[in-house]
């Protein structure tokens, strides 16, 4: 089991291998880390988290979203080189 204790506390944690994918060269590409830990990018420019989730076919109620390591609301905007991590909420327990 992985406890992500330091996750949002600002402590630098080693970046997972997934970041080894060569970064996009333009500055308007949002990096997305999906619940299954796979990584993709979108070049559609500034958009709200809600719109991003809609584009990805993800129900906002089933996930929480961090932008650059900080939790954000669905009406926040992602743009430029933001890194968006989408975390699925496991049921039960």
């Amino acid at each position: 089991m992985r406890w992500c204790q330091q996750w949002l506390t600002g402590i630098q944690i080693p970046k997972p291998d997934i970041y080894a994918i060569s970064p996009p060269s333009t500055s308007t590409i949002v990096k997305i880390i999906l619940p299954d830990k796979s990584c993709r990018t979108t070049g559609s420019g500034p958009l709200t988290v809600e719109a991003l989730l809609r584009d990805l076919g993800i129900d906002p109620i089933a996930v929480i979203v961090a932008r650059n390591g900080t939790l954000v609301t669905e009406d926040s905007v992602v743009e430029n080189e933001d890194e968006v991590r989408i975390i699925r909420i496991a049921h039960g327990g």
């Binding site: 992985r2 992500c4 496991a90």
Partner: peptide, 14 residues
């Protein structure tokens, strides 16, 4: 989920 995440107590459990 948000409460746990804000406390650094989020665990990725099956």
């Amino acid at each position: 989920a948000v409460y746990l995440m804000l406390h650094g107590a989020w665990a990725d459990l099956p």
